[in-house]
Design a protein around this nucleic acid. Structure first.
Lengths: 112, 112
DNA sequence: ATATATACATAATTTTCTTATGTATAACTT
DNA sequence: AAGTTATACATAAGAAAATTATGTATATAT
């Protein structure tokens, strides 16, 4: 597991992107998907995930739909119309950030 | 100015990388260099910078050398031997992080 | 004379996480 | 049958790293 600290600030964007790619997902599913996608490099804890989902919902970016599967509760989240728009801009910001950081940490990068 | 929030957690690595590329720099110089390098996308505030420099120094990654230029104080920071080693591993972690995030937010990326 | 730039610093607050804890059901193991 | 792990939600306490606000002081530009 790499430096989790670096992921600080990017959780909302990750959630939004996954929902843009999969239409609807529930919390636990998101944690498992991220673990799988990142080959275990990023583990989203419940203490980070659930508050983040609640916040995105409160901001009107996500809609929630409760389901019962195998006698267990699931909360499916999906992007609202506004959430879809916001995802586009969050992804653009993320790409700017990644490009900028790439430039800075590039081994060929020099200050001269 | 992009989403400053995304840079949370990467300030130490940025400082270390700049010092690896320039041998010694003082605080204000770092803020200006970063602004220039990122074309204004990232503005490092003093409230973030100075505590970060003090912390890196306390951890033994930086040495400080005080100078007086034009009757004004400057504190030049440079990597210690340990700081140079640590920079290598911090940059490796940063590259892992950037690669992983790139995978997740890549527009060609799909969950199927 | 006044504002901006250079150069440091810290305190209060906010944001976002980690760690710890709690509830509950299902499935697997011994 | 009993205990552990997996599934599925949630929140509270605390830590980490920033922002915002404030402070000191000198130099330069208007």
């Amino acid at each position: 597991m790499g430096n989790q600290k670096l992921y600080k600030g990017s959780l909302q964007t990750i959630i939004l992107k996954l929902l843009a790619a999969t239409d609807k997902m529930y919390g636990y599913e998101i944690t498992q998907k991220v673990k799988e996608l990142t080959k275990g490099e990023l583990t989203i804890t419940e203490g980070a995930l659930y508050p983040a989902l609640h916040k995105l919902e409160a901001e009107g970016l996500l809609d929630v739909e409760v389901a019962k599967v195998d006698n267990r509760l699931r909360k499916y989240y999906k992007l609202t119309e506004n959430g879809t728009k916001e995802t586009v801009s969050r992804l653009a910001e993320m790409e700017d950030f990644l490009r900028t950081m790439q430039t800075i940490v590039n081994p060929n990068f020099s200050l001269e």
